[in-house]
């Protein structure tokens, strides 16, 4: 029983770390562009395919490939922001439709190049560890470690560096930030590119655990949105914690109540929590209750 409990917890945390990384990117994009970016999942997908080509076709070491995917997807994010989203900033519905257009384009380009058959990257660490009855693949631990490390680096970057502070200031109030001398235009592009890069890396890591298809981005993006709202808009820490929370809730719910309903437990948690905290777990509470 205790072992089972431990297994659910560990696997939930591993999935949760991915959710957290995706939600972190989404919450930054939303904070700075005011757009629900449905194409964020496609950044994962592109990252996964780049890592696949580098490792399986060109024989590059997996870690190197993951870093290259991250950089390449970051660059792609930059190009996308400069060519599309910059024209629809804070027009949330227009931005949403633009992101849907990007989804259609990116998915079908991937489909044209690699086809619909699922591909996979052989995990560089194929063994399974067993500690106190808890069984977990080494590859999952590696993915967990890398994701958590990156999340920590990213949070430190936002808190400590000049650019990070600029990003947070622009997210809070772009006009005031601009009058204070922050080059908000550049900040927006950098933020979008960073969020994409984060997704690219997660994509490369996911590719060693699950399969790669042109449509693999849909589910993580949806989960990312749920996590972002659960954590509270604008709260980086909230997104991270909510990511782990949703991962663990799904793992326990799927393991102990119903495995087919696994994806539903996160949604139920979101609905219940929003009834009591309409601004999410750590979001900015409105100064006065409107209604």
């Amino acid at each position: 029983m205790l072992e089972q409990f431990g297994n659910f917890l560990v696997h939930g945390l591993v999935t949760g770390s991915m959710y957290a990384a995706v939600a972190l990117g989404l919450t930054l994009t939303y904070g700075i562009l005011g757009i629900l970016n449905f194409a964020h999942g496609e950044m994962l997908m592109v990252g996964a395919y780049i890592a696949f080509v580098l490792t399986s076709r060109l024989g590059v070491n997996f870690l190197v490939a993951a870093v290259i995917s991250m950089l390449a997807v970051g660059l792609l994010g930059w190009v996308i922001e400069r060519t599309t989203f910059r024209f629809a900033r804070h027009e949330h519905l227009n931005g949403l439709v633009i992101s849907l257009g990007l989804v259609a384009i990116l998915q079908n380009i991937a489909l044209a190049i690699w086809g619909a058959d699922p591909l996979s990257i052989p995990p560089p660490l194929p063994r399974t560890l067993e500690v106190w009855g808890i069984r977990i693949g080494e590859q999952r631990l590696l993915a967990f470690g890398l994701t958590v490390g990156l999340i920590i680096l990213f949070s430190l970057f936002l808190k400590r560096t000049r650019l990070g502070k600029g990003i947070r200031a622009t997210a809070q109030n772009a006009h005031v930030a601009a009058t204070l001398g922050i080059r908000t235009e550049r900040v927006v592009a950098v933020t979008f590119s960073l969020a994409a890069a984060l997704a690219g890396l997660v994509g490369a890591l996911i590719a060693t655990i699950y399969t790669i298809t042109p449509f693999m981005g849909g589910l993580p993006a949806m989960k990312g949105f749920v996590v972002m709202i659960l954590g509270g808009l604008g709260s980086v820490g909230g997104s991270i914690l909510a990511g782990f929370l949703v991962g663990v809730v799904e793992s326990f719910g799927g393991g102990m109540i119903s495995s087919i309903f696994k994806d539903g437990f996160g949604f139920v948690a979101l609905i219940l929590i929003l009834i009591f905290r309409p601004w999410g777990l750590f979001g900015q509470r409105p100064e006065r209750e409107d209604v």
Binding site: Y30, L36, H92, M222, M228, P278
Partner: peptide, 11 residues
């Protein structure tokens, strides 16, 4: 409101 409503109804 806003994205909160969107994602909750989505759920």
């Amino acid at each position: 409101k806003g994205a909160y409503l969107a994602i909750c109804t989505f759920a």
